[in-house]
Design a binder for these strands. Structure first.
Lengths: 169, 169
DNA sequence: CTGATTTTTTGACATTCGTCAAAAGTAAAG
DNA sequence: CTTTACTTTTGACGAATGTCAAAAAATCAG
């Protein structure tokens, strides 16, 4: 964090604020200091949450960042949030000037990859309830801040199913 | 490929050969010149295919490579295959000597990430049949070389379901 | 507070896919 | 060939989750 301090900007967002709107290129990566952000997109008219980020978590419009295209994703603050913004272009030139940090950047990218592998395996082997329990385990307070619908779409189930899961304990 | 030629070794494997056995650390990354490899693991006693790699594709025991732990994954040749092996330790020191290549390595890692995002979305939104059609679309000849069971576990469905999907066109 | 809006819950029913068991088909070994 | 092992198909049934509709509960604005 300190190493990258020079290219990090502090920003505050209000609950509900749209930090990045889909269909535009997004050059920033966001690191959450406090609050909650989510990235989401629309699939057949439905709002699908792709990712949640809480304290020390990162979010970005991955497709746009990595391929420099317009993004399918939007990013939104679900609570009032303190966020560090890193411009991806600045990051690239910062890394170019400090090649020793490239290794770190790669390691981060690889860790994110392994996280995704885990999420994919969850989809392959776990029931809706088990996936929900895992999520609660990882983010115990998530239900206090995030609506049922957002959680359900993240887990790949309907709101109704999640409601039933929750009330059958 | 040429850039890394110095640390790539050509190897041949016979159909059915186990290239890497699970529960051991795997220091190699494999790039397929011809043939097919798969990585797989056991989940509740069932053989689950995690990944297929055909021409120019890569496989590795990702968990072991990236975290230097014993791997859950095994790697197997499904056909006689010509493979390039890259030792991960050599790769790391090669990159350390040629920091300008770190950027490339990071880009590769990021592309693999986006591939996984796509696969995850498949699990979230596509029916078993749609996932099968996507796979066929990407690897039209896969059915000629890979057994039904391996394909089914890769898609996250049972062999029986895949058999029905296939015979209902 | 109070009415309006949004979110969550509940119900009835449909669909997809899994499970278990057995039959049919294919490949491998003697 | 022919026997044996493995792979794929088929059938009957059940479980998990989706869909649509409406009721209940919570939240928000005035």
């Amino acid at each position: 964090m300190d190493t990258f301090a020079g290219i990090l900007t502090s920003v505050s967002y209000r609950r509900g604020a749209i930090i990045h709107a889909s269909n535009t290129t997004c050059n920033s990566l966001f690191i959450v200091k406090s609050g909650i952000l989510r990235s989401y997109y629309f699939k057949d008219g439905k709002d699908i949450t792709a990712h949640f980020a809480m304290r020390y978590g990162m979010v970005g419009a991955v497709d746009s960042l990595l391929r420099q295209t317009k993004s399918r994703y939007s990013i939104q603050a679900l609570e009032n949030s303190e966020v560090l913004r890193m411009d991806y272009g600045e990051m690239e030139s910062f890394l170019a000037k400090n090649p020793s940090l490239e290794r770190l950047a790669r390691k981060v990218s690889q860790e994110l990859y392994l996280d995704l592998v885990e999420r994919l395996e969850g989809m392959l082997f776990l029931s809706a309830k088990e996936r929900y329990d895992h999520l609660l385990n990882r983010y115990p307070q998530i239900t206090q801040y995030v609506g049922l619908g957002h959680i359900a779409s993240y887990l790949g189930i309907t709101q109704e199913t999640l409601s039933r899961i929750r009330n059958s304990t």
